[in-house]
């Protein structure tokens, strides 16, 4: 895995668009396939941002740092803009074909998440698991969105499941399904940093006024 800076974030959204276009047959070969989504290895601590005096600028910088987590495949794969999750570090369409269904757990009569995903990761079968395993609701779709758009969505209580900022910070820092991102099982690159660091970044962002990156 390559270690890259925050510049990767824009690349990520770009590469998603590239999937849609480059997937056209005859144009895409293995050697020209979109690069695997790049992931940062670590997160900068909140203290690194203290030198940014402008509050909004600081909030934006903090969110961009936290965005390395939000836009890692571990989070993005289950925040699709359509009905189908993606999978692996390459963020390929989930195989087999599964769709969100009403509760984000699969179509009625179709494949439920729980057909394969159980309470815990099962590395012997290379299948990840978590007690809360499910798709994020469609209003929380992140794939194909810019970090600024994701930020605006996260803050909007109409789109974030009615969470207050405090609840949001708690969710990011404590939720066990969010926490799975750092414990994704063998063969999957974990989200950068730790959930604790991520929670601190989100809290600092909220404390700094929760400004969002532009675009």
């Amino acid at each position: 895995m390559r270690v890259v800076g925050t510049g990767t974030l824009a690349l990520l959204a770009g590469s998603l668009a590239a999937v849609a276009i480059a997937a056209y047959p005859g144009l895409r070969r293995a050697d020209a396939a979109p690069e695997a989504v790049r992931m940062a290895a670590g997160l900068k601590p909140v203290t690194d941002f203290a030198r940014i005096k402008n509050k909004d600028e600081r909030a934006v910088a903090l969110f961009e740092e936290a965005g390395k987590v939000l836009q890692s495949p571990r989070c993005m794969n289950c925040h699709p803009a359509g009905d189908r999750p993606t999978q692996t570090d390459k963020m390929l369409p989930h195989q087999p074909l599964v769709v969100r269904g009403e509760a984000g757990m699969g179509a009625p009569g179709g494949l439920a998440c729980t057909t394969c995903h159980h309470e815990a990761n099962f590395d012997a079968a290379r299948v990840p698991g978590n007690p809360k395993w499910q798709l994020a609701p469609i209003e929380m779709a992140w794939q194909g969105r810019s970090l600024g758009q994701i930020c605006a969505q996260i803050k909007d209580s109409k789109l974030n499941g009615g969470k207050t900022m405090a609840q949001l910070v708690h969710h990011m820092a404590e939720d066990e399904l969010v926490g799975w991102g750092w414990n994704p099982g063998a063969g999957r690159t974990p989200a950068p940093g730790t959930q604790k660091q991520f929670g601190e970044l989100i809290k600092a962002w909220a404390d700094a006024g929760a400004a969002c990156p532009k675009g």
């Binding site: 494949l111 439920a112 729980t114 099962f122 079968a125 290379r126």
Partner: peptide, 26 residues
């Protein structure tokens, strides 16, 4: 053995499950 093919499908409490992806302990 990796929940890709469905040949091992059983029901657990009535719900379809790939038996290769569920440890006995669970």
């Amino acid at each position: 053995g990796v929940a890709q093919c469905g040949a091992c499908t059983v029901y657990v409490d009535g719900q379809t499950v790939r038996s290769c992806s569920l440890p006995v302990s669970a």
